[in-house]
């Protein structure tokens, strides 16, 4: 008499294994790899940091003073670089509470309106370096009221609202 018990164990082991592997295959191929959410989180963090730093720079240290940001824009001729901005902004955004510093790069520019034709001109205020292709940046902005000749050819200085825009990214 041939004993068939043995074959049954083997066959059923095979069957169970096959079922599991098939399911695993289907399941793995059906679920997607999805990393989009993370980039938005870090964008948000960077944006918040930059917007905070600009806000702090636009806040005078004590009453009666003018804010550092307003001063920087007022003293810097249109089109020239202002290193004070870079130093201050870099210090505020790169400082951490623990050891070491962050590595945040930025390009800061100022937008103003031309009174004659309502067009908007932009000039660069300061930057750490240029944005290389493929780097992931965010933009933060801050309104400042300055007393300045805008555009530089304007006959007199008056109170103007300008928008400071900072494009920032991590190394």
């Amino acid at each position: 008499m041939v004993n068939t018990d043995g074959q049954l164990y083997t066959i059923e082991g095979f069957a169970a294994g096959l079922i599991m592997i098939m399911t695993a295959y289907l399941v793995v191929s059906a679920t997607s790899v999805y990393t989009a959410g993370d980039t938005h989180i870090s964008d948000m963090q960077l944006e918040q940091l930059g917007s905070d730093a600009l806000k702090i720079m636009a806040t005078p240290a004590s009453t009666g003073e003018i804010s550092p940001l307003q001063k920087i824009i007022e003293v810097t001729p249109v089109g020239t670089d202002n290193a004070t901005f870079g130093k201050m902004f870099g210090n505020l955004t790169n400082s951490k509470t623990g050891f070491g510093t962050d590595h945040i790069q930025f390009i800061a520019s100022v937008s103003y309106r031309n009174k004659t034709d309502d067009s908007v001109s932009i000039y660069r205020l300061n930057s750490t370096r240029n944005l290389a292709g493929g780097e992931h940046a965010v933009r933060t902005t801050k309104w400042v009221i300055v007393n300045k000749k805008l555009p530089p050819s304007a006959p007199f200085a008056e109170d103007r609202a300008v928008l400071v825009e900072v494009l920032m990214w991590r190394d």
């Binding site: 997607s32 790899v33 999805y34 990393t35 989009a36 980039t39 938005h40 964008d43 944005l131 292709g133 493929g134 780097e135 992931h136 940046a137 965010v138 933009r139 825009e165 494009l167």
Partner: peptide
């Protein structure tokens, strides 16, 4: 919609570059 958000960032936030990995 994720790609649309990227385009929104480019257009309305004047961010120069965006990339998203997707399946």
């Amino acid at each position: 919609i994720v790609l649309q958000n990227d385009i929104k960032s480019l257009a309305y936030k004047a961010v120069p570059f965006k990339e998203t990995s997707l399946k």
